[in-house]
Design a protein around this nucleic acid. Sequence first.
DNA 1: CTGTATTAGTGCAGTCTATGCACCAATACA
DNA 2: TGTATTGGTGCATAGACTGCACTAATACAG
Lengths: 200, 200
Amino acid sequence: MVERPGLRELKKRRTRQALIEAAVRLFEDRGYDDVTVAEIADAAEVSPRTFFLHFPAKEDVLLAGADVRVDLALQAIAGRRAGEGLPEVLVRAMEQMVADAGDRDLPSGLAALRARLAASVPALQARLLQRYLAAQAELARALQREFPDRLDAVAASALVGAMVGAVGASALTALQRGDGPDGVRDAMRRAVALVARSVA
Amino acid sequence: MVERPGLRELKKRRTRQALIEAAVRLFEDRGYDDVTVAEIADAAEVSPRTFFLHFPAKEDVLLAGADVRVDLALQAIAGRRAGEGLPEVLVRAMEQMVADAGDRDLPSGLAALRARLAASVPALQARLLQRYLAAQAELARALQREFPDRLDAVAASALVGAMVGAVGASALTALQRGDGPDGVRDAMRRAVALVARSVA
DNA sequence: CTGTATTAGTGCAGTCTATGCACCAATACA
DNA sequence: TGTATTGGTGCATAGACTGCACTAATACAG
């Protein structure tokens, strides 16, 4: 399952990581807009052109490795147990994501930085929202595949939209209110429970 | 209440309208990305510089006059009747928005174009989502003001997030599936009903 | 071990969005 | 009629992003 990397792949990852770290450091120091891609590349000791070889846009350097959580939820849906009905699976999938967010994202500095920057930089906010939407669509598709007789495409979208919307909005509000990691996770959990009531 | 425009204001609106119409025509012909701001300005017989005098960014020329609906929902919340509880108000606010969308937005050609383009152009999608998010925050605040003993800030956000998320996602899915205006409105209504069950 | 195919990274020229600035000319207004 | 506003213009510029031709390192087949 684990491909041995090979020298080439290894170097590639190293530059990628260097770019991310350089970007984070510079953003922390001087904010998002005041840092150019050229400077990030420079700090990572690569050419500016190389930056775009690793990230489709400036924003994406901050969003590296955020697809993991979606996979978790997808797995939770695909690998559902025999007795589980729709509400149980949905809740488990969301809990999975919330738990991972609480474990990795919230305590690490990156999440805080991302949240802080996203609040003030429209371009970043926009890209983040886009990802949410894409993830949502994937989840909805998976859910419908698993419960074809109970959900059509629109119903599945509505359900997932409600979940993600509720969790996202309450997390954001909790963050803005100054809640710590635990408070945020708790807010997300309550949002899941709220929406779960509508499927029960 | 209605200020008489005056010549200057009148001309201003005319150029603005010319820009919008030129943009829509060109986008319909050749898609979003293949049309430059310079070309839009050219077609509207103004300088490229003038475009950015009227719209903060290229995307916004398609989103002109799309803030109206939020007001409707806010009014619905603020002007609630004596007997109405939380679920009733929320549902009425959302129904208000959905109805207006069905009346104005969906049948007009602009909405169809916007939907089509938004589905395929990330930049546009992103800007739209941002607007939704801003509207969401406003609605949540209004709702909490009206039911301070039943909802805290986070709970209000979760509720509104669920509503908007569900309605938005199902509308998008219905649109992408090729549903007509009636089908889309119906999908939105069902989404409202779904989430309403969790507050009942 | 040697020749060949990939491919990460480079450099450059160019496109496009967006902005600051000085300026003109039409309107508003005293 | 003179003065202040202000919509629109032209110019220069920054900065994100792309296509293209190229290099040099790695992978790999024989």
